[in-house]
Design a protein around this nucleic acid. Structure first.
Length: 918
DNA sequence: GAAGTCACG
DNA sequence: GACGTACGTGACTTCG
């Protein structure tokens, strides 16, 4: 049978307030009444499991003080003192508490909570339901009847008709008359002077009801009582109306909507954590099945309040830090962020740590503020070693999920300070896996997109230019506002992204490809790679000499000095001053002088510019190598480690590839002999060697699998040279020329072919190019179908998908501008192939460490990734043992999630330097 | 900060 | 009839 519990929230708050000490929460807000109220709801939640427990429940609150009773009697409740100052802010929190329990909360303008309760009670009883009113309000006792009782959670007792009889001497049905005679000094119900509960019940029992009493008054024995009853008859009648519960309004919410559907844990947990109600949190943890996996989808997201920077706490004593850590451990998750002295994680020093537990419940723990100015006053903060030891227990606690935005950075910084971070979620990866191609994934951009919030700009905190200060020099108040906001915002991202992962089918790529990679990349960045600074310096000098000589010759040929490095000046010199024909101007009106143009001129025996073009090309190559590699790389050596530590971005490339910056170690020269020398400057430590392992033709293999091309699949299975095979199929013979053309066509297919593009590359007409493409499609059936299918899918869904479920979005696929649309189509053809390749090598990287450990090779260190290549450093003696392990991990990286119909070929080389390892 | 150029897969 | 021509990156130089 349905059983409706109606909770008299308003009545409860006042009782709880007076019964409990003036408790405050972690923010210093008074929460005594809220705590009492919360424990009351907790008790009710326990009732849920009982046989006659609630099936329906609602909390009823007073909305406003002005009701119809004030219209009847202007003094009604007029004498009530205003609620105590420290109770007022708790009223809205009561609503939060109710929401935390996922209970409906009902309040209606112009009606007191008692009236609404009466309405619901009557309606439920009429349907044959059981009703329990959670209150000890005497007015509500009028409602007691068979099927309706009251429950006082403070005394843990049920109240029925016999309780009313005992306390007021009458049954519930006559209670209104008694209350009218008694009056109520608190509510200012007048009643009749001199009549209290005893007299009232006696009179009602003698005369039946109020009207009976008033009618009998003149015949009573003379005295004060008789006179008062006669004189105050109207007041008594008014009182009768005032105490009557009014239930003639429609129900604000239908009864059926009050059905209990369980109490989701997440919002409750968040609420308890927000206020720091530790004992209840502990109880919750005791009954929780999985403390880390949280159904955050039930968290009310729309209702996150705006960031309250002044509400963040600066944690400067151990007790406060303990408190935050305890709550984080109880809650089971915490958003974290680190503040440091710089952007390079392998050099930056830790300055502070921020944490967030709930929107607006965030703190900053300064660790090294005070700046470098030894005369400046150092603010009070927890001893760094002590604080880090405490934080270590939290960050390494396997039952507490750490949430970060680009956690790789924090992992490196914290790792250098001796702290691991696990388990973790990374909101930058979540955003990338959900929305790659739609927008960037930096905190500021995401905050604007998802939270309509503009984060405090870092430069507004530390300044710019020569006035820029280190974060350690920032005052704690400002630092807290900035740092805690980052953790707060990160937590808000997580609450939004986490439920989207399964809903949008990207959990697999997040959990199986990207997330496991974070600690792996962090470790690679920390390792860095040794470079031979002397060798680079020597190359720089050589290049400078050669450039100087070329510069003189170029100026002589040009008939005067100019800046060779300026495309504008060079274009004018070549095409205006020297009168070379065939100059093409770009949209900015500058002649193109790129490598294609210069090669064209240099190849033309009759051109007056062929010598200068050749020399400029040589000069450019040297200039590029010197400035980008030999000079820059020397400057990038970390003095502490003597090695170069790149930074990999996991969210930089739309297709899921990594990218490398500061320095970019994914574009170290290899294609020319001059450039190759730079690879020789990347070396192994004494007694070690470098091992380079790369996937051979991985993208073509994946194309063969994904487009299901039997001829290509078979060729890979046999181990044939794929470009020769293509040459044979397309041109009927294999020689250097046809193989080269075939290679170009193979790549063109992967990149989304156009007849003009291919024509330009092969130096043939568009018609001839088209004929080759047609023949390719004919010889390799499946390719054309793959292209058509991919474009169709991306037009329909707006995104492509890799074999592992990685999405890349192409909003421009619906552009009205043709070339944007076509560009998106070409990118969409390439993305599943390039992306799947990226997924596979990422999986290999994540599995590599454990596989090497298992093979007893803990000294093999993975240093670099270059899209289809992994570079390791290992003791010379480990090479033979490591080789098969590395090969196996790479070759089987797709499995078992994806079983490919082509083998993945791996080529491995070793050497003292990266150059010789190839 | 944009544009041009060029290093890599 | 104009447009622009292969996918994905990052770093450096010049110049306004």
């Amino acid at each position: 049978m349905p059983h409706l519990y109606l909770v008299d929230g308003s009545g409860y708050i006042f009782r709880a307030y007076h019964r409990l000490p003036p408790l405050t929460n972690v923010h210093g807000e008074p929460v005594g009444a809220v705590y009492g109220y919360t424990t009351m709801l907790w008790k009710l939640a326990d009732e849920l499991h009982k046989a006659d427990g609630p099936t329906h429940m609602a909390v009823i609150l007073d909305k406003s003080s002005h009701t119809f009773r004030n219209e009847l009697y202007d003094k009604y409740k007029a004498q009530r003192p205003p609620p105590p100052e420290d109770l007022v802010p708790q009223f809205p929190m009561i609503r939060d508490a109710t929401r935390a329990f996922s209970l409906p909360c009902i309040e209606t303008e112009g009606l007191e909570a008692d009236d609404i309760i009466a309405c619901y009670a009557k309606a439920a009883l009429a349907q044959g339901w059981l009703v329990t009113i959670v209150s000890s309000d005497k007015d509500l006792m009028q409602l007691i009847e068979p099927g309706l009782d009251m429950y006082d959670t403070m005394n843990n007792r049920r109240l029925g008709a016999e309780h009313v009889q005992e306390k007021f001497g009458v049954g519930p049905e006559r209670l209104g008359d008694v209350l009218a005679l008694m009056g109520d000094s608190v509510d200012n119900v007048p009643g009749v002077t001199g009549v209290g509960p005893k007299t009232a019940s006696k009179l009602i029992n003698e005369h039946g009801d109020l009207e009976g009493v008033l009618a009998a008054a003149p015949s009573m024995k003379p005295g004060k009582l008789r006179d008062n009853l006669i004189e105050q008859a109207d007041m008594a009648r008014l009182s009768r109306v005032l105490v009557e519960l009014k239930c003639d309004v429609p129900l604000p919410e239908p009864l059926d909507d009050l059905e209990l559907k369980g109490i989701p844990e997440a919002p409750l947990r968040a609420f308890l954590a927000h206020h720091g109600f530790k004992s209840l949190l502990a109880k919750l943890s005791a009954v929780a099945d999985t403390p880390v996996e949280v159904p955050v989808s039930t968290v009310p997201q729309e209702e996150d309040p705006p960031c309250d920077h002044d509400g963040y706490e600066t944690v400067v004593d151990e007790a406060a830090l303990d408190r935050w850590i305890t709550i984080a451990k109880h809650q089971g998750w915490v958003a974290i962020d680190t503040e440091t002295t710089g952007v390079d994680a392998t050099r930056a020093e830790l300055v502070g740590v921020s944490m967030a537990l709930h929107p607006n419940l965030a703190c900053y723990i300064p660790l090294a503020h005070g700046g470098t100015d030894m005369f400046a006053e150092v603010p009070v903060q927890i001893d760094r070693t002590t604080a880090l030891a405490k934080l270590k227990t939290l960050f390494e606690d396997p039952s507490v999920l750490k949430i970060g935005h680009n956690l790789k950075y924090d992992m490196i910084v914290l790792g250098r300070a001796g702290l691991d971070v696990a388990p973790f979620d990374d909101t930058i990866l979540m955003s990338f896996d959900l929305d790659a191609g739609l927008h960037g994934h930096g905190m500021d951009e995401l905050a604007a997109t998802h939270l309509s919030h503009s984060c405090i700009a870092f430069k507004d905190v530390v300044g710019t230019g020569k006035n820029q200060r280190g974060f350690a020099e920032i005052d704690l108040k400002t630092a807290t506002r900035y740092a805690a906001e980052d953790a707060d915002v990160t937590l808000r991202f997580w609450r939004r992204f986490k439920p989207r992962l399964p809903a949008e089918q990207v959990t697999r790529v997040y959990e199986m490809v990207d997330r496991p990679l974070v600690p792996v990349i962090a470790q690679m960045e920390r390792h860095g790679i040794k470079v031979d600074a002397a060798k680079l310096a020597q190359l720089s000098t050589e290049f400078a000499h050669q450039m100087g000589a070329l510069e003189v010759e170029i100026h002589a040929l040009a008939g005067g000095a100019f800046t060779i490095g300026s495309p504008k000046q060079l274009g004018d010199v070549l095409f205006e001053r020297m009168g070379i024909k065939g100059g093409r101007k770009g949209k900015s009106g500058v002649y193109s002088t790129d490598v294609n143009e210069l090669e064209r001129i240099a190849a033309d025996k009759d051109s007056p510019g062929k010598d200068i073009a050749r020399k400029v090309l040589d000069w450019r190559q040297l200039s590029k190598l010197k400035s980008t590699y030999t000079d820059a790389l020397q400057a990038q050596i970390n003095p502490a480690t003597g090695r170069v530590h790149t930074s990999y971005s996991l969210t930089g490339a739309q297709t899921g590839r990594l990218s490398s910056t500061d320095p970019n170690l994914q574009n170290i020269p290899i294609r020319t002999e001059v450039g190759r020398q730079i690879r020789d400057a990347f070396v192994a430590e004494e007694g070690n060697v470098l091992l380079a392992a790369d996937y051979s033709q991985i993208e073509l293999r994946l194309a063969a699998h994904m487009a299901d091309v039997p001829a290509l699949r078979d060729a890979f299975a046999r181990g044939d040279d794929i470009h020769s095979l293509t040459a044979q199929e397309l041109f009927g013979e294999v020689n250097r020329d046809t193989r080269g053309r075939a290679k170009t066509i193979n790549f063109a297919i992967l990149y989304g072919i156009s007849r003009w593009g291919l024509a330009g590359r092969l130096d043939v007409t568009a018609e001839e190019a088209q004929a080759m493409i047609d023949r390719y499609f004919e010889r390799f059936p499946g390719i054309n179908n793959y292209i058509v299918q991919t474009i169709e899918t991306v037009r329909e869904k707006g995104c492509t998908t890799t074999l592992f479920g990685r999405k890349t979005h192409f909003p421009r696929i619906r552009s009205k501008i043709q070339h944007e649309r076509q560009g998106a189509e070409r990118a969409a053809i390439n993305a599943p192939i390039q992306g799947t390749s990226a997924d596979i090598i990422k999986r290999a990287m994540a599995r590599m460490g454990p596989a090497l450990i298992e093979a007893g090779l803990p000294n093999v260190r993975m240093l670099l990734q270059v899209h289809d290549e992994l570079v390791f450093e290992l003791p010379e003696g480990d090479v033979e043992a490591a080789r098969p392990v590395i090969e196996r991990v790479m070759a089987t990286a797709a499995e078992p999630a994806v079983m490919l119909s082509v083998p993945l070929g791996i080529e491995i080389g070793t050497g003292k330097s990266w150059g010789t390892a190839h």
